[in-house]
């Protein structure tokens, strides 16, 4: 692992009206590393990663990729830096099929410039076969799929295009135990390939199983960042619920001050 982070988000802030959804948060991620983002509902996790994926424009702060300042103003910019995202809402176009969603914005084309639907369906069958072997509904619009099947499509889309930086916002929320296990294996495999992963999850066991480090947010502010080996599950719960930063973690601006 080199010492320049793959991604560094420095002093990010964004407000919706008077609501400071993300307030002065800094996180970083090295290649081949899984960093978990934790926090209760509404803590600002999704908002933070949506800035990185180009969905939201930040009010303040800088994003560095490979140590270089970036200009991420929309999702296309983010993709150019190899940032792929599985959104909490999945962000699928419900009226078109799995292959069309997989390749949305990056369609395969024939030599005449027309859509190569057959090739896209073939590629889709291949990825989905690896990810969710039971998946067979390639002709149906994704609106007709189950929650887990839809989630598989969203995951397939994020991993199919050689991401360097992968953002997974609660990727297993709708999956059954077997598929969840498959996603865990997938994360380990991608990590071994040197991909950096931001993982948002409410499942603390999963996080301890998969993450190298974790950053905890509360009310839009960073409570602290810790290496998984330096903290216990109870200490992390304390960070999430109370905002109390344990000795093994580096406190952020949102940590409960010791003096109080």
């Amino acid at each position: 692992m080199s010492d320049t982070p793959l991604v560094e988000m420095r002093d990010m802030s964004i407000a919706f009206g008077g609501n400071h959804a993300v307030d002065n948060v800094s996180v970083d991620l090295f290649s081949g590393e899984v960093v978990a983002l934790l926090g209760h509902n509404g803590a600002g996790k999704s908002t933070l990663i949506k800035i990185l994926s180009g969905a939201y424009r930040r009010d303040a702060g800088e994003i560095y990729v490979d140590g270089e300042l970036t200009h991420i103003d929309n999702p296309r910019d983010a993709k150019r830096y190899g940032i792929e995202t599985i959104y909490q809402t999945l962000a699928l176009a419900d009226n078109v099929d799995a292959a069309a969603n997989l390749f949305l914005g990056r369609e395969l084309r024939t030599k005449w410039g027309t859509l190569d639907d057959v090739a896209m369906e073939a590629a889709c069958r291949e990825v989905m076969g690896r990810l969710n072997p039971n998946f067979q509904r390639f002709k149906d619009p994704v609106a007709a799929l189950s929650g887990g099947q839809r989630q598989s499509v969203a995951i397939a889309r994020a991993i199919h295009f050689n991401a360097r930086i992968l953002i997974m916002d609660e990727p297993t929320a709708a999956l059954g135990p077997q598929e969840t296990e498959q996603v865990a294996d997938l994360i380990k495999k991608l990590k071994a390939e040197g991909i950096g992963i931001f993982l948002i999850s409410h499942d603390i066991h999963d996080v301890f199983d998969l993450a190298d480090r974790m950053s905890v947010m509360k009310n839009g502010r960073l409570v602290g960042t810790a290496r998984t080996v330096d903290v216990t599950e109870d200490e992390v719960l304390g960070m999430i619920i109370l905002g109390k930063c344990p000795p093994g973690a580096i406190p952020g601006p949102g940590a409960l001050s010791e003096a109080a």
Partner: peptide, 10 residues
């Protein structure tokens, strides 16, 4: 089908 999804897909 989903304007936001199209946007997020680039």
């Amino acid at each position: 089908g989903n304007p936001e999804a199209a946007d997020l897909a680039g």
